[in-house]
C-alpha cells in the first residue's frame, strides 16, 4: 500500500463513454495483484470530495492501468485528464483473485459485464502466464459497450460476447450466453465482475454445477483502506453473516460467501 501523489498519465484511450488511463507508478505496479484496486483523487478541490476506487486493468513493470466508464462527476473529471497530467493515487488495495500457479493447465472462465470487464484483463494475462486457458465471456448493453472486444481478440483469447439489444454477438445477457456455453463444456473455475444481477446469476449457475467461483464486488468507498467502514457487504463467515468491508477483505469474494441482493432472479 503506497501513496503516489504524482502518477503521470502515460497513455489514454477512449471509446465513447469508456476510457483507459495508464499511470506511471513503479512502486504500485511492483506490488499490484490481479483483482486489487487503486483509489484515485479526481479533483484537487473539494468537489468531488472523496477518491474514487478503480480496479487495476493491467500492469507493466512501471505502470498500472485503469479502465472506466463515465457514470458521474468523478469519472467525468477523470475522463478529461490528459497524457502528462499527474494523478494522486493510493494502492494497490484489497485482496485480489485467488489465481496462482496451481491453475496451470486449467480451463478458466472469465465473465465480465459492462465496465466489470476491467479487472478481468489483468487476470487473463496472469492466467496465461501460469499456463491456464482463459475463456472470456463479455457482455454489454449494446455494441458500443464492448470496447475491449478487439483487445481480447487480437491477443487470441477464446472470446464469446453478447449484447442486450443483439447489435453484436449473442442477443441477451452474458449470463444467458454463459449458460448456453456450459451445455458444451465445464470450466474448472469461474471469475466474474459486473452488475449485481449478472454476478448473482453466474453465482447460481456455478453453485448448481459445483464450479468454484469468485466475484469482484463494486462499492462506493470512503477511504479504500479500512478506516471508514463505509463499503460493507453481507458476507458469510464461519456460518454467520456479517457486514464485511469490501475494501479490506475484498473486493474479490468467493461466490459461496456472498449474500446476493434480493430481486429479479
Amino acid at each position: 500500500m503506497v501513496k503516489d501523489p504524482q502518477a503521470r498519465i502515460v497513455d489514454k484511450k477512449n471509446w465513447k463513454s469508456y476510457f483507459s488511463l495508464s499511470l506511471e507508478s513503479p512502486r504500485i505496479a511492483a506490488q499490484a495483484q490481479s483483482g486489487q484496486f487503486i483509489m484515485v483523487r479526481v479533483s484537487a478541490h473539494t468537489q468531488p470530495l472523496l477518491r474514487r476506487p478503480f480496479s487495476i486493468h493491467s500492469k507493466s513493470e512501471k505502470t498500472v492501468e485503469i479502465f472506466f466508464q463515465i457514470t458521474g462527476l468523478g469519472t467525468e473529471l477523470l475522463s478529461q485528464k490528459k497524457p502528462e497530467d499527474s494523478l494522486d493515487i493510493l494502492g494497490p488495495l484489497g485482496k485480489g483473485f485467488e489465481a496462482g500457479k496451481n491453475l496451470k493447465g486449467k480451463d478458466i472462465a472469465l465473465v465480465g459485464g459492462g465496465r466489470g470487464i476491467a479487472p478481468l484483463y489483468f487476470l487473463s494475462q496472469k492466467l496465461r502466464s501460469y499456463g491456464a486457458t482463459a475463456r472470456i465471456f463479455y457482455g454489454g448493453k449494446s455494441q458500443e459497450d464492448l470496447p475491449l472486444k478487439e483487445k481480447f481478440e487480437k491477443e487470441g483469447f477464446d472470446l464469446h460476447w453478447s449484447t442486450d439489444d443483439g447489435s453484436s454477438g449473442f442477443k441477451g445477457f452474458v449470463s444467458d450466453l454463459f449458460k448456453t456455453e456450459l451445455e458444451k463444456y465445464t470450466p474448472d473455475r469461474i471469475f466474474a465482475c459486473g452488475p449485481e444481477l449478472m454476478m448473482k446469476k453466474i453465482s447460481l449457475i456455478a453453485q448448481e454445477k459445483n464450479i468454484p467461483a469468485e466475484f469482484s464486488l463494486e462499492s462506493v468507498m470512503g477511504c479504500g483502506f479500512g478506516a471508514c467502514w463505509g463499503c460493507v457487504r453481507r458476507i458469510k463467515r464461519d456460518n454467520r453473516e456479517e457486514w464485511v468491508k469490501i475494501c479490506e477483505e475484498g473486493p474479490v469474494f468467493s461466490g459461496n460467501d456472498i449474500i446476493w441482493e434480493e430481486g429479479d432472479e
Binding site: 468531488p48 462506493v220 468507498m221
Partner: peptide
C-alpha cells in the same frame, strides 16, 4: 456491533453524509 446496512455513505457538495452506525 454490526453497524447499519449499506448504503452507509453518500457524497454531497464538499461534504460526506455517513450512517455507519458505530460498528
Amino acid at each position: 456491533r454490526e453497524g447499519n446496512p449499506p448504503p452507509r455513505l453518500v457524497e454531497t457538495p464538499s461534504g460526506l453524509i455517513n450512517a455507519i452506525g458505530l460498528p
